[in-house]
Design a protein around this nucleic acid. Structure first.
Length: 184
DNA sequence: TAGGCCATCTGGTCCT
DNA sequence: AGGACCAGATGGCCTA
């Protein structure tokens, strides 16, 4: 499997140009699984017969209403049902893939607004979320203390003003320096 | 080699 | 019926 880089502008460009898989054609079945050989269908897939009995009145005690000339669902052969199920799965996989890509894209954006780390130490997903949380708390504390407020719940630390006017923020076990112009 | 991280597939559930 | 969201399973890649 090819691993896709998720950094910044190139990713954005690819995303904007919709280069991501645009259909179900690319789906790969694990271990060459062939659903065509399935002998039973999941409960969610019902045959036309069962649908029609339920839909037309349910219990056998109740007199059946006159059948509409147009069936609610088209009759499908088992082969057609298997194909339909495969198609739906492939489409669901595609959507799920895109959903995760969007999630990763958002995570990548979040990384860019967090204080920079050396290139080699790219934050993992969980680290990014935790650090973002601590960072926000620390920034909020700094704002609060700048406005004369107080309060402390033992989480990320507040800011300490440096000699040159920049603010030192304790975010977890990392100290971040915010310059007077707001840069880190 | 074990363990961490990640992408992907999958089935279930809820909602429209 | 179909889409969104979620969590578990699986397998690949990388590093200590």
């Amino acid at each position: 499997m090819e691993r896709m880089g998720t950094d910044g502008d190139a990713w954005d460009a690819a995303w904007d140009r919709s280069l991501w898989i645009g259909g179900c054609g690319g789906a790969v079945y694990r271990d060459g699984e062939d659903l065509g050989e399935m002998t039973s269908l999941p409960p969610s897939i019902t045959t036309t017969d069962s649908c029609s009995s339920a839909g037309d009145g349910g219990s056998p005690d109740i007199p059946r209403r006159k059948r509409s000339s147009k069936p609610r669902t088209r009759a499908r052969s088992p082969t057609q049902l298997v194909r339909l199920r495969r198609l739906r799965r492939a489409k669901a996989n595609d959507r799920e893939r895109n959903r995760m890509h969007m999630l990763n894209h958002a995570l990548e954006k979040l990384r860019t607004v967090l204080p920079a780390f050396p290139e080699e130490t790219r934050l993992t997903k969980i680290e990014t979320l935790r650090f973002a949380n601590s960072y926000i708390v620390a920034l909020a504390r700094t704002l609060e203390s700048a406005g004369g407020g107080g309060g402390d719940d033992g989480g990320a630390g507040g800011g300490v003003r440096d000699a040159d006017g920049s603010v030192l923020l304790a975010v977890g076990n990392v100290t971040v320096r915010l310059g007077r112009d707001g840069n880190t």
